[in-house]
């Protein structure tokens, strides 16, 4: 994997060598890094701190990180409210389905792109790449009508199919690139034994592509977990809403329950955070390869 983590550092040109007297430089660098970390981390720290406050303490003057009313009440409120738990359930169902289905469909397409030469291949390739640039807002209006016609409005299936349109191109491109790095002799060997291409794909290629599948899967999960515009438009009832919309609904209520919104935000980022911590190297490698090669 392109584990950013494991590669030895390569001098980047800002320092010509590592001479013995670089303590000054080191201190300056650490200071700059710390400043950057404050920029990145302070807002997140404030979110975490606010989720433990009483709502009346949110704008207390002067602001304090930890207030006398420190408690887990906001979390308890959310975790005991069936409506809000439903938001989480919906998000998990949709995001996991999108991930699994996108991977299956993408693996099939990637196999065709990687192992076959066929009429129209270049055109289809260009279509798959450029589809990614179609702005969601352009699709939104016809989707509204289309989903009603297909009886998929306000259903899981509607959201799942919609998200697949956005995740598939990336997944196909990534998996094609991945398969291209695997020697074709692998699947040729199985075919000589009389097995079909499906066997070669699922028995040989897929099992050795787990790292690629994980990075594409993580990325797909994130897109589905985070999506806002279509979740807002293609669902109507509270029991079909996902977490991002749930957060917006909290904001729309008569008074702002800031501590609950922050608690819900923390709970909402946990799956992504866990994915990131567990699969950090796949994550970074996959994302980077995608960004570079898309």
């Amino acid at each position: 994997m392109t584990a950013v983590v494991e590669r030895p550092a390569v001098t980047d040109g800002t320092t010509s060598r590592t001479p013995p007297k670089n303590t000054g430089k080191k201190v300056a660098l650490l200071a700059a890094l710390t400043l950057g970390a404050l920029f990145a981390g302070l807002p997140v720290l404030w979110m975490l701190a606010s989720s433990f406050k009483r709502n009346s303490e949110i704008f207390a003057f002067p602001p304090r990180l930890i207030t006398p009313g420190f408690s887990f009440d906001a979390y308890t409120t959310i975790l005991t409210d069936p409506t809000k738990l439903r938001f989480f359930l919906n998000s998990y169902v949709v995001a996991l389905s999108v991930t699994v289905l996108s991977l299956v469909v993408a693996v099939l397409a990637a196999y065709a792109f990687s192992r076959y030469e066929f009429w129209g291949k270049k055109t289809i390739n260009v279509v798959v790449v450029s589809v990614q640039a179609v702005p969601p807002i352009t699709l939104l209006i016809p989707y509204f009508g289309l989903m009603v016609t297909l009886r998929l409005y306000n259903t899981y299936q509607g959201l799942i199919l919609t998200y697949m349109v956005f995740t598939l191109p990336y997944a196909i491109i990534m998996m094609t690139g991945y398969f291209n790095t695997l020697p074709k002799e692998l699947d040729e060997a199985v075919k000589v034994d009389g097995a079909g291409p499906m066997t070669a794909l699922w028995r040989i290629l897929v099992p050795i592509s787990v790292p690629g599948l994980v990075s594409v899967g993580v990325y797909t999960f994130m897109i589905a977990w985070n999506e806002f515009l279509f979740a807002l438009t293609l669902t109507r009832t509270e029991d079909m809403r996902t977490v991002p919309i749930g957060i917006q609904l909290l904001m729309g209520q008569h008074s702002y329950e800031w501590n609950e919104m922050m608690a819900m935000s923390i709970l909402g980022c946990i799956p992504v955070l866990l994915l990131f911590l567990f699969f950090q190297r796949y994550f970074i490698g996959g994302m980077t390869a995608g960004a570079v090669k898309l």
Binding site: M1, V129, T176, G177, Y178, N180, T181, G212, Y282, L294
Partner: peptide
């Protein structure tokens, strides 16, 4: 092993 080398075309 896991990432296409820089010079691999998107479609092989």
């Amino acid at each position: 092993i896991t990432r296409p080398p820089e010079d691999t075309p998107v479609l092989a």
